[in-house]
Structure formats: structure tokens, C-alpha cells
Write a protein that binds this DNA or RNA. Structure first.
Lengths: 321, 321
DNA sequence: CTGAAAGCGCTTACAG
DNA sequence: CTGAAAGCGCTTACAG
């Protein structure tokens, strides 16, 4: 058994070539696949990481940001012999989550949602598992000790978009945000506001019932009725930007002639609208990959090397601004 | 230990209310979380299912079909105490896959790609693990015994789209398909061809370098140069449909006035183009959910109740046809 | 209801 | 290089 274990785990220097090949032949012949659970039990590890996406919708992967982060984490972990257990869950059901009630992962990756208070309550529950945690797209509250927060620079994203619009002559900007906002969205808003203030431009915030197309367009219509057409409509994300674009087209406003429009995060579908949506390129996939890497490093070295990672963003010009 | 095990596993009838509460209190106090791996080892089960997406791109979740199926599987399994281990992998790397080399799952869900020969080679490797397998969006070859194939009715999808276009007066249809096709795409093509033949209409197949927007638009341009503008451009999926839509718009062709356009699968972004893309609603999420359910049923009952499931599709009218 | 024991399939220190 | 043994944390049949 010792030698087989040594072969399976690649400690090949402990035996002769002939022995190695004999064992390998037997493995092939028997179609032997080592039981990963037994190995993990013996080594007091779990061999897997949990990804928990807290979302009220069962389609928790609908947002490309989420699925890109997932792909990044998954690829890194799979390449390093770790499993990724994926769960999407409504906030109310988190307490019953298998990943929290049973000990089956070495660490957790979290994408939370809801108000700050709600997210803090979630993080406390996750912390109670005693596992190291990577939080995506949110800051780690002070009480989260064994934690790494990974975000993209959404403040800069807001600034880049607002500055570009102002440079092109816009003086009154309207930023579309969902009623139920989230930290990244708030950062974009703060960034856009900072840029507007710096350049003496005006930034209105238009609160939409949700980020869905119908709610977004309704909110735009009401805002324009009240305040007139702004120089620019900034979608809080690509979906809201595209909603603004089609709203303008449905009313026969020229984009960018009558009103400029932008999005944020730059996922695939911005190339499918006309004019192409000016947006921000999100490093979501890379964030996921780094999150996986940092978590495995934490597991092997005992602590996270840093408390936060902030990923740079860049502007992707389309024709809509 | 016996009583604690009975509490943890919900065999509450074996003890008094007082005992139950004493154990529960101790669990809370100690923040005890049972080790899932040890339980699985004792019960000779793995407690998890693997999802393998064979894709040459690291962004293996970019297609909404894939991420919707994943969400469906994940939600069903999580709700039933099973884990889902997600891996995206290039075909060339499949042989080294952890999910194949180690014994860590009770069953596999597969989304393959490539030619029929390549997919057969993949399925043989998966079969060698001895696990029950659910194949999505492809038929199960004869040699796959312990297998369930789950597909949507793509033949009907092709028929529905072609028939609708013909009813609206189209006589020459052009179907856009990627050079590297796949079974679902071939089914759509067969369905569209059957409908065209039945109604005496003409269906040309336009092979595009890939399903990417640039390749699709290039292929359309070449086809139109050679054969003139068809009455309708049928995208093999929504992405290709949207590519056709923007191609027409960039050339100042009216849609549907000069040329009708359709997509297939009906994911979110078809609402963000103008006119809205007429498409087919894919039951991808439901397929994933049923796949998870059928796999767990297979695990508890010893065999799949059926060899195939075919999900119905419906047409979603937009303004593009 | 509790306690003692066996065993799931591994890893690893140790003796030969 | 091989063999025997302990132990990872559970479940479960059995005795008390």
C-alpha cells in the first residue's frame, strides 16, 4: 500500500522505474481511481472550496459578472486539484445551507447582495464556519478577520465614464441605479459624482425600480418628463445602459446626437447593439482566477498575504457617447 | 455518539424531546459541523456530482445556455444535500481531469463539444469511470449504457422559425451556422430544412467561421454579395441572430422590411436590440433542474427511468421578422 | 438511551 | 521496497 500511495501521489523518487511501471500497469488494469474523500479525511482537509452566490433569483448566473468570476475561480482550482462546490441561494435560506451546516470545504468564496446590514449578517454566518473567506465586489467588514476582499475599481469606472461624457460636452448627466443598490454600484455613483463636481457638471441620480429593462425605461421616462432630456444617460451597468439606448431609440432620439449613453462592465452583448455601447471592461474572470489563487495560497501558508485586491478597469469606447 | 449521529441525521423518533434538545444545545455551543467527507466515506458515497463542460475557451460559461443549465442543476442538487463540482476543460486536457482520475463524485453531467467522433471519444472516457452520466444537448451513443440524454427539441425550433418566416412571405431563407457545428445546431438546421421543403421554400446554409459577431457578419456579407439579399436571415442562435440584425442595420437595410431576422434560445439580451429579436425560448434552466433530479433518482433507485428527455420549445415573437 | 467496536479507503511512521 | 499498524470522523449493529 505504501508504494501504491507513493506512485499515486507522485513520490516517484522513492522507487525504481520498474516498480513504478508495475504499479502503473496494475492501476490501468484495475481501472483504479483513488478515493479522494478517504485521502482528504486522512489529511484533515476537504479538497474543495465553496462558492456561495446569495441572490433572490434562481437564475443566479444570469449576470455575466457572476459567471465570469465563477469561470475564473473554477479554472484555477480545477488546475490545482481542488474542487469548487457552487451554490446559489436566497438570503432567507442561507442559515440552512449545506455548505455552512456541514464541514465540507476548506474555504469559501462569497458574492453577497442586499443592504449593508443584510450583507453584514451574511458575513457573520460565513465567518462562524471558521473558514478563510474571499469576498467579491464588496469590502470586508472589520469583524471579518481571515478574509480577502476582491473588487474592481468601480469608483474609477464611474469617473472614467463621467469625465469622458463631460469632455464631449455633456453638462447634465443622469445616472441610472437600481433601488436595491449594491456596493459596486454605489462606488460607480460616487466616482461619477466626484468627476462631475470636479468639472462643474451636474449629476442627477435616477433610481429605477430594478435593473430590469422595463423598470429602467419607466424610470427614465419619468425623469425626462420631470427634468427634460439630459445630455447623457449613464447606465449603472450594461443592462441599464442598453435599456437607455433602446428607450432613446423607441422615442426617436438620436444616440449620441440627442443624448449620450454609456454602460458598465462591457460584457459580450454590448457589441450587439447599435451604436455600440461605450462601457467599462470588467476584469471579472481575472478576479475569479486571482481569488482562487489567493485562497489556495492562504490554505497552504496559513494567512492571506493581503486584505484587499483592487483590479483596474479601462474604458471601452463604443459609438453611443 | 450514536445519539448525536441520530440527531444530526434527523432520526428524532429514537429519543426523547429532552435528549434531542440537550444534543442540539451542545451542537450550538460547540459550533459543531459534522464532517461530510467522513460520513460519505462510511456510507460509500461521494455526496457530489460533477459537471464537466468541454470547451476550448476558459470562459466556458459565456453561453447563457450553459450557465442556465448549470444554475438548474446546482439549485436542484443543493436543495437535496448534494454538492456540484464544476469544471470547464479543453478537450485535450480531459484525460488528466481530476474528476476522472480520482473517485470523488457519484455521477457526472456532461456538456461536450466538437465533432461526433471527438464527442464519442469523450463519452468513452467518462463511461470508464463507471458512473451514471447525464448528457446535455446531445444524443447518447449506443455504447453509453448507464446514461440519460437531455435535449431541447431543436428540430422543432428550426421548424417553428422557418414556418413563421414562410407564412410571413419569405421564400428564400438563409440559415447561419458556425463551421464547427454541434448536434443542437444540426437539428435546428434539419428542422428548418424540413419546413422549407414542405412549403416549397428555399433554404440556403451560410457557414460562418465561428459564431462570433465578426465571423458571422463576414459570412453574411459574402453570401449576399454572391446570392443577393435573402428574404430572411436565421441565426443559428441569438448571438448570430443579433449579428445579422446589426449587419443589416449597418448597411441600412430595414428589418424586417428588407430582410427578416430570427435567433434561437431567447436569452436576456434579445430584449435589448431593436427591433426585438424573434427567437425560441429555451428551457435550459428546467433541463438542468430535471437533469439533477433524474441523476439523484438514478443514484437512489439503481437505474435511469428513461434513456432520453426531450424538452419542448416555443417561439417568442419579437419585431424582427 | 449509552457505550464499545468495526469498518469505510486512504496516509504515513516504522520495522524488516 | 513491503507489510503491519494507527488514525482521520463518521455510521450502525449490538449489548447493556
Amino acid at each position: 500500500m505504501t508504494t501504491v500511495s507513493n506512485v499515486v501521489n507522485g513520490r516517484l523518487e522513492l522507487m525504481s522505474e520498474a516498480t513504478r511501471e508495475r504499479v502503473a500497469a496494475a492501476i490501468r488494469e484495475l481501472n483504479y481511481r483513488p478515493n479522494a474523500g478517504a485521502r482528504n479525511l486522512r489529511l484533515s482537509q476537504r479538497g474543495a472550496v465553496g462558492l456561495i452566490v446569495v441572490d433572490e433569483s434562481p437564475r443566479f448566473l444570469a449576470d455575466p459578472m457572476t459567471s465570469n468570476i465563477l469561470a475564473g475561480i473554477s479554472n484555477y482550482l480545477s488546475g490545482n486539484g481542488y474542487g469548487l462546490l457552487v451554490t446559489g441561494i436566497r438570503r432567507a435560506a442561507v442559515a440552512d445551507l449545506h455548505l455552512l451546516r456541514r464541514d465540507q470545504t476548506d474555504g469559501l468564496c462569497i458574492m453577497a447582495s442586499g443592504t449593508q446590514q443584510e450583507r453584514r449578517a451574511l458575513y457573520r454566518q460565513f465567518k462562524d464556519t471558521g473558514q478563510p473567506i474571499v469576498i467579491f465586489q464588496d469590502e470586508a467588514p472589520d469583524f471579518m478577520t481571515d478574509t480577502l476582499s476582491i473588487r474592481q475599481d468601480d469608483h474609477k469606472a464611474g469617473e472614467l465614464l463621467a469625465e469622458r461624457l463631460i469632455q464631449r460636452g455633456a453638462r447634465r448627466l443622469a445616472l441610472l441605479v437600481p433601488a436595491q443598490s449594491w456596493p459596486a454600484m454605489a462606488e460607480r455613483q460616487a466616482g461619477a459624482l466626484a468627476a462631475a463636481t470636479r468639472h462643474g457638471a451636474k449629476l442627477d441620480t435616477v433610481t429605477c425600480g430594478s435593473e430590469e429593462i422595463a423598470d429602467t425605461q419607466l424610470a427614465i421616462a419619468r425623469y425626462v418628463e420631470r427634468s427634460g432630456l439630459p445630455d447623457a444617460l449613464l447606465g449603472g451597468n450594461d443592462q441599464m445602459g442598453c435599456a437607455a439606448l433602446t428607450w432613446a431609440q423607441d422615442r426617436n432620439f438620436a444616440v449620441p446626437g440627442d443624448v449620450r449613453v454609456t454602460g458598465c462592465n462591457g460584457f459580450a452583448f454590448i457589441d450587439y447593439v447599435r451604436p455600440r455601447l461605450t462601457s467599462i471592461a470588467s476584469p471579472a474572470y481575472e478576479m475569479g482566477k486571482q481569488g482562487g489563487a489567493m485562497l489556495l495560497q492562504r490554505l497552504s501558508e496559513g494567512r492571506f498575504k493581503q486584505r484587499e485586491m483592487l483590479f483596474d478597469v479601462t474604458l471601452v469606447p463604443g459609438g453611443s457617447d
